[in-house]
Computed example of a mutant assay.
Amino acid sequence: MSRKTIDLYTFTTPNGRKPIIMLEEIDLPYTVHVVDITKGDQFQPEYVAINPNSKIPAIIDRETGLTIFESAAILIYLAQQSGKLLPTTQKEHFQVLEWLMFQIGGIGPIFGQFNHFKQHALEKIPYAIERYEKEIFRLYGVLDAQLAHHEYIAGDYSIADIATFPWIANAEIGGLTLVAYPHLQRWFELVGQRPAVQKGMAVKF
């Protein structure tokens, strides 16, 4: 893979950290453009032109001319471009994609809604908090069962792990500990030792 610069538009949310970790893992140069979602930068016309959904992250690959938004799409693109962290054999390829979609369709939305109702909602609604907390623990259980038989989520370290780690870390910060999920705890500590993950999680804008 040739050395090229990726323009990364992101912020310090779990989704925003995924491409930073990925770019560090594949050792690809990138330039960060901060999209401060607390100030509404994501709604500025120049950013909407990059991501019509007004969310972060997004990338522009200046070499290929491609603009890509949605964190999972970015991870898949970078994996395919680099030939790393996404197997090419059919079975392993779709195992990684299964768990990537598990994060995108389950962990992200559920953890995000829990954080909203627990931390940011003007009115505390016990039913909503309890509902999403209960679902988080169910998802923890699914991951724990998978990790009882695999070192990483889909076998080898992959974009499925990169996608999932920042959300688990965010939940830990929010007080949802992994004490009752030893295999998930083991994985969390293992992935957290990777230099690329540490750098991606430490970035502050």
Rank of each mutant, 00 (worst) to 15 (best):
N51Q: 10
K18P: 08
I129W: 03
T64Y: 05
A79T: 04
N170Q: 14
G155Q: 08
L100A: 12
F11S: 06
L176G: 04
F205D: 03
D27C: 10
R3N: 13
T12L: 10
M1A: 12
N51S: 12
L28Y: 12
A169M: 04
Q193W: 04
Y132R: 06
Y152C: 04
S82A: 15
T67C: 00
M201N: 03
F137D: 02
K124P: 13
G83C: 12
Q90H: 15
F117R: 02
M201F: 06
I110F: 04
F188W: 09
Y152R: 06
L85D: 06
G105W: 03
Q80T: 11
N170E: 11
L28N: 14
K124D: 12
K39I: 00
K199A: 12
I68F: 00
D161C: 01
D36I: 09
L184N: 03
K134P: 03
I37Q: 09
Y47Q: 10
L100I: 09
L122N: 12
Y9H: 12
E24H: 11
V35Q: 06
F111Y: 15
I173N: 03
L75S: 13
G108C: 01
A148W: 08
R186M: 14
H149R: 08
A154W: 04
S82P: 13
Q81G: 14
A73R: 14
M201K: 02
P87I: 02
Y9M: 10
V32A: 07
L122Q: 13
G200Y: 01
Q193G: 15
V96R: 13
Q198Y: 02
K4M: 14
K4D: 05
Y140N: 07
E24K: 12
K91M: 07
G192V: 07
V197W: 05
Q80A: 13
H120V: 14
Q113I: 02
F205R: 07
F43K: 15
I26E: 08
P14Y: 00
S2Q: 05
R138T: 08
S158I: 00
E123V: 10
Q103N: 12
S158F: 02
G105Y: 04
P14A: 02
R3P: 00
D27V: 09
T31M: 11
K134H: 14
A169L: 03
D7Q: 13
G108V: 00
T12P: 06
Q185L: 15
M201P: 04
G83F: 11
S54T: 14
R62E: 12
P52Q: 09
E24R: 09
F94C: 11
L190H: 01
L23S: 03
F205C: 07
A128T: 06
N15C: 07
Q146T: 05
Y30S: 07
I168F: 03
Q113D: 06
L28W: 09
P19E: 01
I153C: 10
A202I: 02
A145Y: 09
R186S: 15
F165W: 11
G83N: 11
A121Y: 03
K55A: 01
K84G: 08
S2W: 00
G200T: 00
D161R: 00
K55G: 00
K124W: 05
G192R: 07
P19Q: 01
P57T: 01
M101R: 02
T13W: 02
I159A: 08
N115K: 13
K91S: 13
Q193T: 13
R186P: 13
L8V: 05
A196G: 08
T31K: 15
A128Q: 08
A49W: 05
Y132V: 04
L75F: 09
